[in-house]
Structure formats: structure tokens, C-alpha cells
């Protein structure tokens, strides 16, 4: 078996043996999405939400909840721990690059988050919720959002040496990002200035792009631009400042 597939296999096994984080990440938003989709009232357009439905606003928020938790909490936790254990340094002594471990972790976290997203889109339809009307736009928005989130997670894993500090920072960032996605104050009801800030955050832009896709159209190019910039900047930054030991 090649080193890459062996690494992914090993890391998947390790993740399955510590299922806590992943289960917690997946179950909460998926159940919430199902409950939300099962209540008929949530599907009607509401004037308070600027004509959008409750489900239309909150399904993207929940989808972002899962990827955000995995990317800014689970990912830095695993990587900083590996650095503390000296696993990354030990890999440097082998012909394999320690980068292989990062690739394996990113692939794994991304796969889990895609499964969560699919569950949150598909399962509610069994209870009468609508499908996203523009599937390609939904998927493109999702991939760009995931890139920006994983980039942020990598920056956290690069900035902090200590797993506990990284976890603490990840938690704070998670709540900030969820706030701007509109978990507590839905974006359509945010005051203008707050919404402007939200538009520039990765979760705010991603919520708009996903909600527009669910409603059947592509969001304006600016939202994709915001996600692209976040993804590119965080990735470059992480590559520059990441330390193996």
C-alpha cells in the first residue's frame, strides 16, 4: 500500500477510536436540520426575514456549524497534539514528508464534513423540506466555504504550539464565526453595519451564498470573492508559519 493511502487509513482508524469530537460535531447540527425541516411552518416565507423562509436561512447556518466546528476545533486539536507528541518531527526523519499527515488530516476532516452536509441536505427532505434549488451553486459555495474554514483551522494549528491554547482559541473563533453566520441574529435581521461586517467574514459570505443557492440562484460574485480571499490568504499564511516541532 502506498504511503499516502496507508496514512489516510491509519488516521481514519485513529479518528474512529476517538469518535467524541466528530460525533458531537455531526449529530447536533444534523438533528437540528431534520427537526427544522420537519416543521411545516419553517418553510413559509417570512416578512421578518426579508421574504426568506426560516428553513432557508437556518439550513445554511447549520451546514456551516458542522464544517466550522470540524475545521477550527477538531483539526487544530489533532495537529497541535501531533506536534506536541513529536509525531511530526519523527515523520521528518523518514523518506515520507510530514506534509503527508497534514494532507491526510485535511482529506479526512473534509470528507467527514461533506458527509455531514449531505445528511443535512438529504435527511430533511424525507420530512418534507425542500431540496436546494440550485445544486451546483450550493456545492460550489460549500467547497469554497470549507476551504476558508480549513484554512483558518490550519492557521490556528500553526500559531499555537499548545493543544489546549489552540482549542481555547478555536472555541472563541467558532462562536464569532457562528455569530456572523447568523446563528443568534439571522443575517436578514442584522442592522446594516453589522451585516456589512458579516458579509466580509467567511461564514457570513458563505451563509449568503448557500442560502441564495438553496433559493435557486447564484449569489453575487462578491460573496464568492470573499470566500476565495479567505481561503487563499489563510492557506498561504499557514504554509508560511507552520512549524513541524
Amino acid at each position: 500500500m502506498s504511503a499516502t493511502s496507508m496514512m489516510i487509513k491509519t488516521e481514519s482508524k485513529l479518528m474512529l477510536r476517538n469518535p467524541g469530537v466528530v460525533l458531537w460535531t455531526a449529530i447536533l447540527p444534523v438533528v437540528a436540520a431534520i427537526v427544522l425541516g420537519a416543521i411545516p411552518g419553517t418553510r413559509n416565507p417570512t416578512d421578518d426575514l426579508g421574504g426568506a423562509s426560516f428553513f432557508g436561512v437556518y439550513q445554511p447556518v447549520l451546514v456551516l456549524f458542522a464544517i466550522c466546528m470540524l475545521a477550527v476545533q477538531a483539526l487544530p486539536d489533532v495537529l497541535t497534539r501531533y506536534r506536541e507528541l513529536g509525531v511530526l518531527k519523527r515523520l521528518r526523519t523518514t523518506p515520507a514528508s510530514p506534509g503527508l499527515l497534514l494532507v491526510a488530516q485535511l482529506a479526512l476532516i473534509f470528507s467527514v464534513s461533506v458527509v455531514c452536509m449531505l445528511l443535512m441536505v438529504v435527511l430533511p427532505t424525507f420530512f418534507g423540506a425542500p431540496w436546494p434549488e440550485n445544486v451546483p451553486a450550493f456545492l460550489v459555495s460549500y467547497v469554497l466555504a470549507a476551504w476558508a474554514m480549513l484554512g483558518l483551522g490550519m492557521v490556528i494549528a500553526s500559531l499555537f504550539r499548545n493543544a489546549k491554547v489552540a482549542a481555547g482559541f478555536g472555541t472563541v473563533l467558532f462562536f464569532v464565526l457562528q455569530f456572523f453566520a447568523g446563528l443568534w441574529v439571522p443575517r436578514p435581521t442584522m442592522p446594516g453595519w453589522m451585516r456589512t461586517i458579516s458579509n466580509l467574514t467567511p461564514t457570513g459570505a458563505a451563509q449568503q451564498a448557500l442560502a441564495d443557492a438553496a433559493a435557486g440562484h447564484w449569489a453575487s460574485i462578491g460573496y464568492f470573492g470573499v470566500l476565495l480571499v479567505w481561503g487563499a490568504v489563510t492557506s498561504l499564511l499557514a504554509v508560511r508559519i507552520f512549524k513541524w516541532e
Partner: peptide, 14 residues
């Protein structure tokens, strides 16, 4: 070259 580093561990559940 094989190297055994000082204080290098593995994941607990490996």
C-alpha cells in the same frame, strides 16, 4: 538513516 528522537511519542490509540 534511521533516527530515534529524544522524547518522541505516538498517538495513544495507535
Amino acid at each position: 538513516l534511521g533516527i530515534q528522537l529524544q522524547e518522541s511519542r505516538l498517538p495513544d490509540k495507535q
